[in-house]
Simulated scan of single mutants.
Amino acid sequence: MARKPEHGLADLGQLLGEIRNWPRISEPRPGSFYLGQQPFCHFRIRNGRRWADIRSRRAWLPRFDLPRDDAQSRLALRIVLHQVYRIVGQAAGSRREG
Results as ranks from 00 to 15, higher is better:
52 A>D: 03
41 C>E: 01
44 R>A: 10
25 I>F: 01
41 C>Y: 05
19 I>M: 07
41 C>D: 04
52 A>V: 03
78 R>H: 14
22 W>H: 09
29 R>I: 08
48 G>A: 04
30 P>S: 08
21 N>W: 07
33 F>Y: 10
24 R>C: 08
29 R>P: 05
30 P>V: 02
66 L>Y: 02
64 F>A: 06
19 I>G: 01
43 F>Q: 07
75 L>N: 10
56 S>H: 14
73 S>T: 13
38 Q>T: 12
38 Q>F: 07
29 R>Y: 10
64 F>N: 04
22 W>M: 09
35 L>W: 04
73 S>Q: 15
34 Y>L: 09
54 I>P: 04
59 A>C: 11
24 R>I: 03
28 P>N: 06
66 L>P: 01
36 G>Y: 03
21 N>A: 15
22 W>Q: 09
78 R>C: 10
28 P>I: 04
30 P>I: 02
50 R>I: 01
64 F>R: 04
49 R>D: 08
76 A>I: 02
62 P>T: 03
27 E>T: 01
46 R>L: 11
54 I>H: 06
38 Q>I: 08
78 R>P: 06
38 Q>V: 11
29 R>G: 07
43 F>W: 10
75 L>Q: 15
63 R>C: 12
26 S>R: 13
26 S>K: 12
24 R>T: 12
47 N>K: 14
20 R>N: 11
60 W>S: 10
60 W>E: 11
70 D>N: 15
36 G>N: 00
25 I>W: 00
60 W>Y: 15
62 P>W: 05
44 R>G: 03
22 W>T: 08
46 R>D: 12
54 I>R: 05
77 L>P: 00
48 G>Q: 04
61 L>N: 06
29 R>E: 13
69 D>W: 12
77 L>Y: 02
77 L>H: 03
64 F>L: 06
28 P>E: 05
67 P>M: 08
71 A>F: 07
52 A>L: 01
77 L>Q: 02
28 P>G: 05
34 Y>C: 02
66 L>R: 01
74 R>C: 10
78 R>S: 15
20 R>W: 07
66 L>S: 00
41 C>G: 00
24 R>K: 13
60 W>H: 12
51 W>F: 09
23 P>E: 06
68 R>A: 15
53 D>K: 13
70 D>S: 06
21 N>Q: 15
50 R>N: 00
51 W>D: 02
50 R>D: 01
62 P>G: 03
54 I>K: 05
67 P>Q: 07
49 R>K: 15
58 R>L: 12
59 A>Y: 11
49 R>I: 07
59 A>S: 14
63 R>A: 13
54 I>F: 07
51 W>G: 03
71 A>V: 14
23 P>M: 01
56 S>R: 15
58 R>I: 09
61 L>V: 06
19 I>P: 00
60 W>D: 11
58 R>T: 13
69 D>T: 11
30 P>T: 01
52 A>M: 03
64 F>W: 06
56 S>V: 11
34 Y>E: 02
59 A>Q: 14
36 G>L: 00
